[in-house]
Each structure stands twice: as structure tokens, then as C-alpha cells.
């Protein structure tokens, strides 16, 4: 059986909120290492990969591998019933028909119990190769969100160019063009504002802003976001969570014709 207690229901709410517009029906794969999810959007352009390690829960118990096939619209409806400071416990039997969600108020004696009917989802698990990226950029998540939201007003795609000058986000649209360049930057007082650029080779790739704006819904999960780029390879956008957990998005680059 599965029993996973999360001190902050809000964390799970934010994760589901960040991915629900990209993917609809997902398997939450539970085993003794934690709860993982991997799902591709319908157009096969973006992939979501989430790992909530068992250390993120207290307690965490999962005796066997259990795949919880859940519709994220249904999950969102139930998670709306949790207050943000509630404690969330996920429960399921070994061959479950339903997943149970229990919300406990830390301050009052209220206990709310919900269940969601599970679905059979036939999902192929894709191997994500270890990649030595040509450029890795860590920057404030809010800054990345702002750049994507600003540029989408002008164009549907953005080029991300990383060189020794820094990283340049540039777009061209019908009304004109826009570009934002960031250089490496260390803020001693506010390390969450740091911009760190590690580059082994110059990289230039073009991506759909619609997807990037969508990934940025995860900005509330982490102060910093990490962008990993190599020419001709999907972009990795990573939000690190506590206890070595993470939410990662992969996006196929646009290719010129």
C-alpha cells in the first residue's frame, strides 16, 4: 500500500497546477524511492518529468510499485478543497481503484477525506539520456518568467543564444523585435538573484514561447530555474524542489526549414 504524508499540501497543488495545462491523464508511479511522473504533451513537443522523493514525505510508505492513473483536471478539483497550509496524505491500496487524499488542518481538528477514481493509462516510459549540455544557465525563476511573458507579446518563438557575452533571449515578430541579454551576476546578499552561466560551447536554439510560458507556471516552486541547452537537443528547464525532488520540462527545439 501507499501512504505518503506531505507537510505542505501546497507543494503538490503547485506541482499539479504547473503541469495540468500540458498533460491531462498521467500515471503517478509510486515505489519506495518516491512518487514519479513522466508524461508528454499531445503534440510530442514537450515532456514533463517530476520526481518527489520519499524524503519529501514524512512518513512515506510504499511496499510495491503502484501506478496511479489520474486525470489532472479531477485532481485539481480535489486539491482545490485543500487549504494551502493543510497537511496532505495520499493513500492507495496495492491494486487500487481509487486514490485517497486526506487534508488535515495544522491549526484545527478538521480532517477532509476525498477520493479520485483511477484510470488505466497505457503510457510508455521514455528513457531520458544523460546529456552533457553545452550551456547551463541558472537564473531567478521570476526573471525567466518575465522574459518569456514579455517576448510572447511580440512573437511565438524565442531564440536562446549562449556565448561568452552572456545569454540572449531574442524574438522577431510582425510589430518589431525584442531581446534580453543576461550576464553572469552574483548577488552576495540575495543569492536567489544570481545568474550563473556555465558554457563549454556556444549554443543557439529556437523554441516555442507558448510552451516556455507554460513551464513558467512552476515559478512559484523554486527561486531559481536551470536551463540546459545543447545544439540540436531538447531544452531542459528544471525547477529544483527540497529533498532532491524536482520538476523538469523538456522542449524540442524548432528547426529551420
Amino acid at each position: 500500500m501507499l501512504e505518503a504524508r506531505l507537510e505542505q499540501a501546497n507543494l503538490f497543488k503547485k506541482v499539479v497546477d504547473a503541469i495540468k495545462d500540458l498533460v491531462q491523464d498521467c500515471n503517478f508511479d509510486c515505489n519506495d524511492s518516491g512518487i514519479a511522473l513522466q508524461a508528454m504533451d499531445n503534440s510530442h513537443v514537450a515532456l514533463v518529468s517530476m520526481m518527489l522523493r520519499s524524503e519529501s514525505f514524512a512518513p512515506f510508505r510504499c511496499d510495491r510499485n503502484i501506478a496511479l492513473g489520474i486525470n489532472l483536471t479531477s485532481l485539481t478539483k480535489v486539491l482545490k478543497c485543500a487549504q494551502s497550509d493543510d497537511i496532505l496524505t495520499l493513500k492507495a491500496e496495492d491494486a487500487p481503484d481509487v486514490v485517497e487524499l486526506v487534508f488535515e488542518s495544522a491549526e484545527s481538528d478538521r480532517i477532509s477525506e476525498y477520493s479520485i477514481k483511477l484510470m488505466d493509462i497505457d503510457q510508455e516510459h521514455l528513457g531520458i539520456p544523460e546529456t552533457d549540455y553545452g550551456a547551463t544557465i541558472s537564473m531567478p525563476a521570476a526573471e525567466f518568467q518575465r522574459i518569456c511573458r514579455d517576448l510572447i507579446a511580440l512573437s511565438e518563438s524565442v531564440s536562446i543564444e549562449c556565448s561568452k557575452e552572456g545569454v540572449k533571449f531574442a524574438c522577431q515578430g510582425d510589430i518589431g523585435s525584442g531581446a534580453v541579454t543576461l550576464r553572469q551576476h552574483t548577488n552576495v546578499d540575495k543569492p536567489e538573484m544570481n545568474v550563473e552561466i556555465n558554457m563549454s560551447e556556444p549554443v543557439s536554439l529556437t523554441f516555442s514561447l507558448k510552451y516556455l510560458v507554460n513551464f513558467c507556471k512552476a515559478s512559484g516552486l523554486s527561486n531559481q530555474v536551470r536551463l540546459c541547452l545543447s545544439n540540436e537537443v531538447p531544452l531542459l528547464v528544471e525547477y529544483s524542489l527540497a529533498n532532491n525532488s524536482h520538476l523538469r520540462f523538456y522542449l524540442a527545439p524548432k528547426i529551420g526549414d
Binding site: M40, L126, P234, K254, I255
Partner: peptide
């Protein structure tokens, strides 16, 4: 317009 590669092929092949 530029097209986008199918991630399915990328991850399956690699």
C-alpha cells in the same frame, strides 16, 4: 515556418 522535432523519437532513439 520552422517545424518542431518529435520528442518521442528523440527519447526513444537515444
Amino acid at each position: 515556418a520552422p517545424f518542431q522535432r518529435d520528442l518521442y523519437n528523440y527519447f526513444i532513439q537515444s
